[in-house]
Design a protein around this nucleic acid. Sequence first.
DNA 1: GCGACTCTATGACCGCCGTCATAACGCCCG
DNA 2: CGGGCGTTATGACGGCGGTCATAGAGTCGC
Lengths: 214, 214
Amino acid sequence: MSERQRAPRERMVFSAAQLIRRDGVNATGMREVAAHAGAPRGSLQHYFPGGKEQLVGEAVAWAGRYAGNRIGRFVEGLADPTPSALFAAMCAQWTDEYERDGFGAGCPVAAATVDRAAADDATRAAAAAAFTTWRTPLAEALTAMGVPAGRSAALATLMISTLEGAILMARAEQDVRALTTVVRELGPLLDAAVTRPASGEPGVSGRPGPPRRS
Amino acid sequence: MSERQRAPRERMVFSAAQLIRRDGVNATGMREVAAHAGAPRGSLQHYFPGGKEQLVGEAVAWAGRYAGNRIGRFVEGLADPTPSALFAAMCAQWTDEYERDGFGAGCPVAAATVDRAAADDATRAAAAAAFTTWRTPLAEALTAMGVPAGRSAALATLMISTLEGAILMARAEQDVRALTTVVRELGPLLDAAVTRPASGEPGVSGRPGPPRRS
DNA sequence: GCGACTCTATGACCGCCGTCATAACGCCCG
DNA sequence: CGGGCGTTATGACGGCGGTCATAGAGTCGC
């Protein structure tokens, strides 16, 4: 159970997330996950004695962590740390993927919610937790950008909701139009929520600094 | 039940939409649809020789038409015909359902997209068409409310994207918080897009002055 | 009565699913 | 060398999936 090995079990979780992203939870078979991860079939019941529910749950949790971590990296990479620029970066990750690799995959958390919210409460809760681990650092980033603390959580919810819906529409239409549209339309509203000149850069807060304009 | 004899086929489409809404496309069986509709199993291949793909396609199309028709009825029922009020009505349909019947079901078009976008292009196209039959009357309603014609389609896309994402989050969290939040946060932006005092809205006389608040 | 047609009814086929049972392998420890 | 244990390897089982094939009911014009 040490982390000396880089990939046996973890690769299966990652593969599960990828396949769920593409085909949904129900259409993703356990054997398929093992094959995709290049892992032996017998490892499934060894690493995931809780069966598919456990595997899906970990895949969803992984996706939530990934999305949450991306927030920090987005903020770091922004030349202009405004809410609209952050939202644009979040959406750009999807437009880039869609233009590069096609519209084959969506958000695994959305897939888990659609396929399992009614039937499997554990997976539903995992999806809710994933949304939280995504929303929390996003709200903190907004606060650091100058959005009032009471408003940040609401705007984070709005941003994630809009992005999720735009991903859905983009996939259905096989066109990034929805993603680019929501970026353009929602941006001004997000920036208008900034009331003070943006405190500390990512993570560290409390240090007042002048807003860097382009 | 007089309708019981009136609509054997239509009931199956409706039942399919309901079950897809709850469990997703893959988890919804043909036998289950027939049973839910109170229809004989043999009617499936009679009315839907195209198999599950046809049934799902018609269910998605039905959902799109339903959503599109709701727009008109929402506009008629609004005391104050503003974009934010329309968006609030659209979201209220979901909060009402969730508070009344629980979080058992989501949007069937979203479910079809998640489950079938990668594997079944016909269903994916049906989902895209459903989004269009939903977005078109919405954009027209916005234009009638005074939103510039060039802006209406973009705002309609934004509204539907946000609503779809909020539905997703609400289901995962089993809490209407996401829905109420996006209504509150997005409303001002929508109303700010109104530039002229609402032209010919369906059946109601125009009001003087730009609409403010809701 | 009698086709013709629409609809219903049922059973079988084949395949994939998740899970379980069981056994072998690989390697370090004693 | 001989266990012990984490891991891998197969095979079987029961169930459900969509679809096909075929035959039965009901009804209507003639």
